[in-house]
Write a protein that binds this DNA or RNA. Structure first.
Lengths: 125, 125
DNA sequence: TGTCGATATGCAATAATAAACATATCGTAA
DNA sequence: TTACGATATGTTTATTATTGCATATCGACA
């Protein structure tokens, strides 16, 4: 058996998750919600965003409830009724939050990827 | 209702996890295993490390099995029997892996924390 | 004023994960 | 050669997370 990482390294992939929580680790708002919030704004409805990501409406709705419960004010402006059934878009606060998270990710993503490259190189030595 | 993040920000905490997987997202080896590997080396046994972290031996053993199955060679040198029941320490490869992950974390941790600080500041604006 | 499709929500079923229980194996030192 | 405590592993029970099903509500518009 080859006692070396070498031939396994190409099969390794990097994963990471970053999220915010309250002090009990609850009320989580992370990558998933960030993604869906962006997509809701883009598509104009929760349902359309769910379909796009293949998520169940039920689960998504529960997630969105959590984040708004945590902050105590809505990040989404939801409208029911109408010929199109209803629409949803981000509130001012929602936009601010999404943009802040955008910046956050932009600042850490490349560093993590770079660190991973170094890790792989270290294992080759 | 206050439409501002301001008064909630102090209750928010940062969380993140970084891990490596095979192409199917399986064979995971991340922060948990990194931590326990270091502790096993320090304590000299799997059991002692488990007790320290409050993890079940069964679960830990399963985790360690996974990582070694993935690489195809042991990261741990395990000994059974003896008056002390047995001991475990890292192999050369185990040490290399742990050290590489040490470096990896050292290079990304501060950036992530700094990014979080900026995120919070952004939400205050 | 009836139709439509999305929002809104409860609840049962199911899957995924972790914990708990049980037991066998090993080898050294007394 | 027996006792000890850690390694090693199967099985089962709990916990939690996710899915799926069902159903009510809403309001612009035809």
């Amino acid at each position: 058996m080859e006692q070396s990482f070498e031939n396994k390294l190409s099969g390794i992939q990097l994963n990471y998750k970053i999220w915010l929580s309250d002090k009990d680790g609850k009320g989580i708002l992370g990558d998933g919600k960030w993604k869906i919030l962006k997509l809701i704004e883009e598509k104009g409805s929760i349902k359309a965003a769910c379909d796009e990501l293949g998520w169940t409406y039920r689960r998504t709705w529960g997630s969105l409830k959590k984040i708004e419960t945590f902050f105590g004010f809505p990040l989404l402006e939801k409208h029911r009724g109408g010929n199109d059934g209803g629409t949803t878009k981000l509130t001012q606060e929602g936009k601010k939050f999404v943009m802040a998270f955008d910046r956050f990710h932009a600042s850490v993503d490349s560093v993590i990827v770079k660190g991973f490259d170094t890790l792989i190189k270290d294992l080759k030595k």
